[in-house]
Simulated assay, not measured.
Amino acid sequence: MIDFKNGTFVKLKATGGFKNQEIVEPLFVQGEEFISEYQGIRDFVIFTNKRVIATNVQGLTGKKKDYTSMPYSKITVFSVETAGVLDLDSELEMYFSGVGKVKFEFSGKSDIVKIGQLISEYALK
Rank of each mutant, 00 (worst) to 15 (best):
L12G: 07
S120Y: 08
S79N: 13
N20I: 05
T68A: 07
S107G: 07
F18A: 12
K19V: 11
E81F: 02
I41L: 13
N6L: 10
E91L: 08
T55M: 05
V85W: 15
K63L: 14
Y38D: 04
I115H: 00
K19N: 11
K63P: 01
E37K: 01
K64T: 14
V113A: 11
I2M: 07
I115M: 04
V77F: 14
F106M: 00
S120N: 14
V57D: 00
Y38I: 01
V52M: 15
K64Y: 10
P71R: 01
K5F: 11
S97Q: 14
I53N: 03
I35Y: 12
P71E: 05
K50W: 03
E81V: 12
L124C: 11
F47Y: 15
F104Q: 00
V113C: 00
G84I: 06
A14M: 01
G108I: 06
S69H: 10
V57W: 02
S90R: 08
N49Y: 08
G17P: 02
T82H: 12
K19A: 13
I35S: 08
I115L: 10
F78N: 02
F47S: 06
Q30C: 07
V85I: 15
K50H: 14
T76H: 09
G116L: 04
E105M: 09
A83I: 01
F28Y: 15
P71M: 05
V29L: 13
F78V: 00
E32V: 04
K63N: 15
F28D: 02
N56T: 09
E33T: 14
G62L: 01
I23E: 08
L92E: 00
